[in-house]
């Protein structure tokens, strides 16, 4: 058995300690652990953690816990019918449950607004501005000259005919 601590099967030590491995795998791991210090340490440390957690004991429940609960139940029982109905159809609300969706909605609106502002095509870009006739003629002359020059260069580059 290859060492689980050095492979992706590191959970085996935990499962062995927790007693959730099947008998065959547990026996295999126990045999491996006799030879492997890392796995033995993992299981021992896990046991120590379990013991350490035992230091934290919970407090005694307040003596008036039941009385307070029954008072709340009584208050609910005597509440007007419309309030009971309202409670049944609406989840209990806290201040946070009001402002949290509002913040999310505001953030979504802000992102949407920014997105539309940045990406909407501007009128100036869609309709090209008419240019003066002289400029257009100059531009077409430049284009013709460039094509002629390019053709000349191609002739020069072509292999000479024998």
């Amino acid at each position: 058995m290859s060492c689980p601590q050095k492979s992706k099967e590191r959970e085996i030590a935990f499962e062995y300690w927790a007693g959730t491995l099947d008998a065959a795998r547990a026996a295999g791991f126990a045999r491996h652990m006799e030879q492997c210090g890392d796995c033995l340490r993992a299981v021992t440390e896990q046991r120590k953690v379990w013991e350490a957690l035992g230091y934290w004991t919970a407090p005694v429940v307040s003596a008036d816990f039941n009385a307070r609960l029954y008072a709340r139940i009584a208050a609910e029982e005597t509440a007007p019918a419309w309030r009971k109905w309202l409670r049944r159809i609406t989840p209990p609300v806290s201040p946070a449950s009001f402002w949290k969706p509002a913040v999310s909605l505001a953030a979504a609106c802000a992102v949407l607004t920014i997105g539309l502002t940045v990406h909407l095509p501007k009128p100036a870009q869609t309709s090209p501005r008419p240019q003066p006739v002289a400029t257009q003629q100059a531009a077409s002359q430049v284009d013709i000259e460039q094509v002629a020059n390019a053709l000349d260069e191609l002739d020069l580059l072509a292999p000479a005919k024998i």
Partner: peptide
């Protein structure tokens, strides 16, 4: 995570 923080305790 707990092992990393508490194993020294017991």
């Amino acid at each position: 995570s707990l092992r990393a923080r508490l194993a020294h305790m017991a």
